[in-house]
């Protein structure tokens, strides 16, 4: 019983860690999603740029996330580019998950019937408007379950950033367990917290499914 009261006393550490994790997660996935959408737009043309981006996306996807975080935080200073743990961690999350978001949307774009695009072209849509108004909304509606899955992966990837000294939720648990030697209880607390965030995400995604269901894309 005393272990749990120690944890209660250390609640501020957990709370600060939770806030850091939530901030890190929401900021990074918003930026990653926007960047992913921009990447897919750039892939619409068959240009040198789009080929280079495809390569970059594939490189990202084959790189373990932890190594990317290491590279940005410990590797770049060797080249004279020093970032705070927060900047490096955010950047790693954004770039890494943008590649995955792009790949999810790209896969869906490949199988989207060309008729919708042709109809928009025939009505005078310019490429950017066409992408934003006609293509992207359909991609997002159709890939909702995959995007949701990616969000949960991104949430869990924030835990890696404890290794580059970022004081997020996992770092909080680690600091409590090493101070008071109660690893099991400390980690159980953060597992529950990660789990609760994931459940909230799942619920939000379930609600979002109604939007697609109303339009005949999805079933609820």
């Amino acid at each position: 019983m005393t272990e749990w009261s120690i944890l209660w006393d250390a609640r501020e550490i957990f709370f600060n860690g939770l806030i850091a994790t939530l901030g890190l997660f929401s900021l990074s996935i918003i930026c990653a999603f926007v960047l992913g959408c921009v990447l897919v737009y750039q892939l619409e043309d068959d240009s040198v740029l789009s080929k280079a981006l495809r390569l970059l996306i594939n490189l990202m996807r084959t790189l373990p996330f932890l190594i990317l975080a290491y590279l940005l935080y410990y590797g770049l200073p060797q080249l004279g580019l020093r970032m705070s743990a927060w900047t490096a961690g955010l950047l790693a999350l954004i770039v890494y998950h943008a590649a995955y978001f792009a790949e999810i949307l790209r896969g869906c774009r490949l199988i989207m019937p060309e008729g919708y695009v042709e109809a928009a072209k025939a009505h005078g849509f310019t490429p950017l408007r066409l992408y934003l108004r006609i293509v992207l909304p359909q991609l997002v509606i159709k890939t909702r379950p995959l995007l949701g899955n990616q969000l949960i992966i991104a949430l869990k990837d924030t835990a890696f950033l404890t290794i580059i000294t970022l004081q997020e939720l996992t770092a909080a648990a680690n600091s409590v367990q090493s101070t008071y030697f109660i690893p099991t209880q400390a980690f159980v607390v953060v597992i529950v917290l990660y789990w609760l965030i994931s459940i909230c995400l799942e619920l939000a995604l379930k609600r979002a499914a109604r939007f697609g269901a109303k339009r005949g894309f999805d079933y609820v």
Partner: peptide
């Protein structure tokens, strides 16, 4: 292209937009 209309064999209505939104879309965004 905005000066030509086109009607396709497979309709190609934009599925994420309601009927009236389909009709309003090009006048607004084009």
């Amino acid at each position: 292209r905005a000066k030509t209309g086109m009607v396709f064999q497979g309709f190609n209505l934009w599925p994420h937009l309601s009927v009236i939104q389909n009709v309003m879309e090009a006048p607004i965004y084009v």
